[in-house]
Design a binder for these strands. Structure first.
Length: 889
DNA sequence: ACAGGGACTTGCAATGAGAACC
DNA sequence: GGTTCTCATTGCAAGTCCCTGT
């Protein structure tokens, strides 16, 4: 509950500023999350991910290594899994060396009934397989990538896109639900602009359900459209074009032309907005369009137009307040501008209301015990004690580092003469119990009460939710200032448990358009640290992170905004561009595996790993962060060479998620790794000549704008595109969705996106099995009845001794068939669930899979887009909704 | 070259809300 | 109609990578 908030008093906070520095040394003992723990502790089976939590309870076992030593830490034995191959490039497989040989057959989810590991493993393999289909494998692998690649490229590529499709696109015939109005507006524009490829129709307001709109527009849903789409399934053959280059350039270029925007906003609009709302719809950046089409520049500019929409709002009664909108005056025009590059102008006018602060702390007065006796605490002291008390059943309480850091900070607030002298003698239970009660009370509130609260909160926050960027109303992402709390670092973070002090207005820098009113500081008597008018950045506000004052916390627009959409699109365009370069890049690094120049050799091998395994770049980290690594920071101990040519990886990556994988690599790579390791200690860097700056500088020579992370996007999207086109068969929508999920899962595995097993997983599986058993018994009985019925006998009595209805054999057969189908479906669910228990599909969907692949596939196969994208993804990917059915990554 | 500031993307977990279930 | 389950949304930590000043 809210109890935790603290008064704005500075006190707490200030003190801590300085001490961030925690001790440099820390041990990495247990892992933080369960996962981690587990991972470490348990050894898992083969699959890479292994890890996850199995049983663990949360204890941590610490291995106790010091940070530095950490390097030396030992990991559990790795398991080998097969790997997946990275590249799944379209054709893939074969050639790619990347892929490891797979042994097992691919198969889908079904197959995987096996136990987890297995399944997981299989899955990976499957991927591989897939790719390999043709397979062959190994041999090829070895071959020069280039060669393979070439193929790839040749085949699949499509470069197209550029042209916008005009007609097709969006249409939305369907009336919108509620707001027709809006939609129209939005739609119209699109069409009109058509040429641009993407126009975003963006929903204008987030408030409104984008979904609906999109849906409507959407393709799949409507038959008609669908049809049309189906027609074309062709994929463009075009090849790469210079356009790419342009694209790149554009990236850099600033868009000078900013377009016009419509009415710049006026001041106050936001506030007032009550009346208006609605946003804009479409905006898209034309740039995109442009990009797509090769020359973007010119066209882009020209095309802008603005649309204005007016709408009225219907304010829904309370329930939907969220959706309420008003008519908006801001419309969006399509403006050109790309914005990508840095230094470039990102906006012309920017109006917003700043940020909202958490409420001050309200003391609850519940006394904790010290050596069994109640203690009086000041509100400041109580606030921090409560933060700690509330974390009683988290894994953090098992960590000495957490407790130590907390104690250090809390002690400062208590003062040296306080009765409380040792954390061990503290008993926070009374506060914990009070907290649980509050939680319970909250849960018990009636719907009306809950709604009233919600509405109240909404009222308070509404004005902060929106910004007007170049005349268009856009949702703000995180307008709430982070409340004070105990820092929850992931993994063995040396600063876990430290007090994250309250942020005050004087910590915050506001960025807003010139000439518009500066947001009023919500806390009387205080003021902002600074007000800037920097239109080369997209943040609306920032403050220094209290835990690490060198870092910042920014307030940005929401993912659904056009600014974000634009850069998202650029990201994918860059990854698509890589398609045209990948063959040469692979050829080049393959050649350098044996270079005499050590740095070159390291760059080659690192690039290979990044390409093949989708590893992250691996920037250097400070000692006051969790000890995790990426490609460039791999340590000798993280890779084990297994003769004749396999590498076993085992390290903690981003978020301290363990990466475990054993892969067969090309012999020169194997030899190079062995060489890099020779004469080094386990904790020494594997790539001693390398860092991400050098690596990226090199990549940029191969393709403009290329950096290590582009490979992840590329491999993820290529894999999806390929699997979808290869595996989608005619059939029911549900089956197609399964194909999609399978591809999505493959990508998640490639990217090592994990999630912890839910607490109820086992119970759920058990329940499912029980149901299946029950159905099976049921079926057995029916079969008996069927036999009897065929012989003209009446059915036996049921378990309760009651008489059953006398059914005809036909009826019984039908019933049996139904149950069989049901059982089958449940078995499938069970497998899928088991299979996905540690795989997180969401991250790749949000960050790595080009939404146009999905949109095009949905159009081609008449799958409603809402089956794949939820409401927020639809909003985020509004820029991709008019992808042509034949779009290929 | 390089360290470090700075801006933005990516990622898992916690929350919350709605759907399914009993 | 309340409870449990699911899935979407939010929160914020943790990466990547660019850029600048020295």
């Amino acid at each position: 509950m809210m109890a935790l908030q603290a008064p704005i008093k500075p006190s707490v906070s200030d003190d801590f500023d300085d001490d961030d520095d925690a001790p440099a040394v820390f041990k990495r003992s247990s892992s933080t999350t369960k996962k981690n723990l587990i991972k470490t502790e348990v050894k898992k089976p083969p699959s890479q991910r292994n890890d996850v939590l199995l049983g663990s309870s949360g204890l941590h076992s610490s291995n106790g290594q010091s940070a530095r030593s950490q390097q030396g830490k030992v990991h559990p034995s790795p398991k080998t899994s097969s790997m997946r191959s990275p590249d799944m490039s379209p054709k893939a497989s074969s050639s790619t060396a990347r892929l490891p040989p797979v042994k097992s057959p691919p198969t889908g989810l079904k197959s995987s009934k096996s136990p987890d590991d297995q399944s997981r493993q299989s899955s990976k393999q499957s991927s591989v397989v897939a790719t390999k289909e043709e397979s062959n494998s190994d041999s090829d692998d070895d071959k020069p990538l280039s060669s393979r690649l070439q193929d790839n490229s040749g085949k699949s590529r499509t470069m197209p896109v550029l042209s916008p499709s005009l007609g097709k696109v969006s249409l939305k015939d369907s009336p919108e639900d509620s707001d027709d109005e809006k939609p129209l507006a939005s739609r119209l524009p699109q069409k009109s602009y058509a040429p641009t490829s993407s126009n975003n129709r963006y929903a204008s307001d987030e408030k409104k359900p984008l979904v609906s709109k999109t849906q409507q527009n959407g393709f799949a849903s409507s038959k008609n459209q669908a049809k049309s789409s189906t027609l074309l399934n062709k994929r463009p053959l075009e090849k790469t074009t210079p356009s790419d280059q342009l694209l790149i350039k554009k990236l850099k270029i600033s868009d000078a032309s900013t377009s016009t925007k419509l009415k710049p906003s006026v001041k106050g609009e936001l506030e007032s907005d009550d009346d208006d709302h609605i946003p804009i719809s479409q905006r898209m950046k034309k740039p995109a369009a442009a990009s797509a089409s090769g020359n973007k520049s010119s066209s882009a500019k020209g095309s802008m137009k603005k649309v204005i929409i007016k709408k009225k709002i219907t304010k829904p009664p309370t329930k939907n307040f969220k959706k309420v909108m008003k008519k908006s005056k801001y419309s969006k025009s399509t403006k050109v501008t790309p914005t990508s590059g840095d230094g470039q102008k990102k906006w012309t006018t920017l109006v917003h209301n700043g940020v909202i602060f958490p409420p001050p702390y309200t003391p609850h007065g519940v006394k904790m015990l010290y050596k069994g006796k109640p203690v009086n605490l000041t509100p400041e002291q109580e606030e921090v004690a409560t933060m700690y008390a509330v974390m009683k059943d988290t894994d953090y309480m098992q960590k000495d580092k957490f407790k130590e850091n907390f104690w250090t900070d809390w002690k400062k607030i208590l003062g040296s003469n306080h009765v409380i002298q040792k954390l061990e003698h503290c008993d926070f239970t009374p506060i914990y119990d009070w907290y649980q009660q509050e939680k319970e009370k909250k849960k018990q509130m009636t719907k009306e009460e809950k709604n009233a609260l919600k509405e109240e909160k909404m009222k308070l926050e509404e004005k902060y939710m929106w910004a007007i960027v170049d005349g268009v109303k856009e949702k703000v992402g995180n307008f709430r200032v982070e409340p004070p709390g105990l820092f929850r670092g992931r993994g063995e973070h040396p600063k876990m448990g430290k007090l994250k002090r309250r942020i005050r207005p004087r910590d915050i820098t506001i960025n807003i358009g010139k000439g518009v009113p500066v947001p009023e500081c919500p806390i009387p008597g205080e003021r902002w640290k600074e007000v800037r008018h920097d239109n080369t950045v997209t943040w609306l506000a920032f403050w220094n992170d209290p835990i690490n004052p060198k870092e910042f916390k920014y307030v940005f627009l929401a993912a659904s905004s056009s600014l974000k959409g634009q850069s998202d699109k650029e990201k994918y365009e860059k990854a698509r561009m890589l398609k045209d370069y990948i063959a040469n890049i692979r050829a080049a690094y393959t050649k350098d595996f044996t270079s005499k120049d050590a740095m070159k050799r390291q760059i080659a091998v690192a690039t290979y790993l990044i390409d093949k395994l989708a590893l992250r770049a691996g920037n250097e980290k400070d000692d006051d962060e969790a000890d995790t690594v990426g490609c460039c920071t791999l340590k000798v101990e993280n890779v084990k060479a297994i003769s004749p040519n396999s590498l076993e990886f085992n390290f903690l990556g981003k978020d301290s998620i363990r990466y475990e994988n054993t892969v067969e690599v090309e012999l020169p790579v194997y030899k190079a790794i062995v060489h890099f390791q020779s004469g080094k200690k386990p904790s020494d860097p594997l790539f001693d000549e390398l860092d991400t700056t050098k690596l990226n500088a090199h990549l940029k020579e191969l393709m403009p704008g290329l950096t290590a992370k582009v490979f992840r996007t590329y491999n993820a999207s290529v894999t999806l595109d390929e699997m979808l086109s290869r595996d989608t068969k005619d059939g029911e929508v549900g089956e197609k969705v399964v194909v999609y999920q399978r591809a999505n899962k493959e990508v998640a595995i490639i990217c090592n996106h994990q999630r912890s097993i839910s607490k109820s997983h086992v119970a759920q599986m058990t329940r499912l099995q029980e149901k299946i058993d029950e159905l099976q018994d049921n079926m057995k009985e029916l079969k008996g009845d069927l036999d009897r019925a065929r012989k003209g006998k009446p059915p036996l009595k049921d378990a309760d001794g009651k008489r059953k209805r006398n059914l005809t054999p036909e009826a019984l057969e039908k019933k049996i068939a139904q149950i069989e189908a049901k059982i089958e479906k449940m078995e499938r669910d069970k497998t899928t669930r088991e299979d996905l228990k540690t795989v997180a599909l969401g991250t790749s969907k949000i960050n790595y899979l080009d939404p146009r692949i999905t949109v095009a596939w949905c159009k081609r196969h008449e799958v409603p887009i809402e089956k794949i994208f939820n409401k927020s993804l639809l909003a985020k990917f509004a820029w991709a909704m008019d992808a042509e059915p034949d779009f290929r990554f």
